[in-house]
Computed example of a mutant assay.
Amino acid sequence: MAQQADGCQVRSFAAMGSPCEIRLHLPDAVLGQRLMQAVVDEVERLEQRYSRYRPESLLSAINAVAREGGSIEVDEETALLLDYADTCHRQSGGLFDITSGVLREAWRFDDGGVPDPALIERLRARVGWHRVCWERPVLTFPAGMEIDFGGVVKEYAVDRAAALCMSAGVRHGIVNLGGDLRVMGPQLDGSAWRIGIQHPRDPGQAAGTLRLSSGAIATSGDYARCKIVNGQRYGHVLDPRTGWPVRSLASVTVIADFCLVAGSASTIAMLKQDEGAQWLRSLGVQHLWVDVRGRCGGSLLD
């Protein structure tokens, strides 16, 4: 759906399981419509290639090989994503692991129970990026594995969408894919965009409000997909070392030049649990965290 708001062209759509929105200031309304459609098409292209839910996707073809064990050659775009995932795996001490998606076979957030620990242990035996041989452009798997780009592809899509817009001359706009977003210059009047960060324990409240004229924001948290069993919250951010949800930080928001970087940094901080806040400080990135007790901290509050 496209509309005009405050002199800004707006397009709302759904992709990657999330509500999405594009806001652009362009003097040519027709060009704006075409550009927004090109952005929607690009996001859809990436979803078709890398969705684990689509049996015809490239990711499904890769995982068919991974389940049986064997090798597959990938294209340059996929290789770049694998290179980035490999870097994140090394820099996180193995916490950021795109093979950990198999754990979702135990963690189903539409039921009311906690998985059998024995099942989690069996699945953990199939986790470990270090067990995959990645020698560009060939991936080689032992049998029983799979990969999941859920931790990178939406953020990558934000950056791709922003690149399309900026190459077309956009200097005032924002791309928002399910709360992961990229700001392409200030608003038309020169003011920064105001962006609210949802509080992970109070959906009606903001943990903070940011003002941004350029750059990207991404948030990882335990509230978007979770369940509560006997008063204990179990979120979808799973520690690949244990197979269980993290239980220290409730959400982490990071500002960076690129959404891909902001997203991986926020996820790694969640996975580092009690060490996450210190790790973010050591990186020198702007950030905001909320722990499971509702306490807030980070450089954005300083």
Rank of each mutant, 00 (worst) to 15 (best):
M166W: 09
D291Y: 05
P117R: 02
A29R: 01
E121Y: 11
G32P: 01
D97Q: 04
V285T: 06
K154M: 13
D148I: 04
H236L: 07
D159A: 06
R67K: 08
V132G: 08
G179A: 10
C259S: 07
E76M: 07
S71Y: 01
H236Y: 09
S264N: 10
R104I: 15
N230D: 15
G178D: 12
R194Q: 12
G7Q: 08
R34F: 15
P186E: 10
L283A: 11
A15M: 07
P200C: 09
M1K: 13
A269R: 02
E77V: 10
V114E: 13
V132Y: 01
G178M: 09
L164M: 08
K272Q: 14
A157F: 03
Y50C: 05
A5S: 08
L82C: 07
M270F: 03
C165H: 05
L301S: 03
C8P: 01
G185Y: 02
W134T: 05
S71N: 01
V138N: 02
E73C: 07
P19E: 15
C165I: 11
R90A: 14
A250K: 02
A157D: 11
D222I: 13
N176T: 07
V153F: 01
G231S: 07
G112R: 07
H130G: 10
I195D: 12
Y234G: 09
Y84S: 09
P240Y: 10
S264F: 12
G151F: 06
R49Q: 14
A106V: 05
R293V: 15
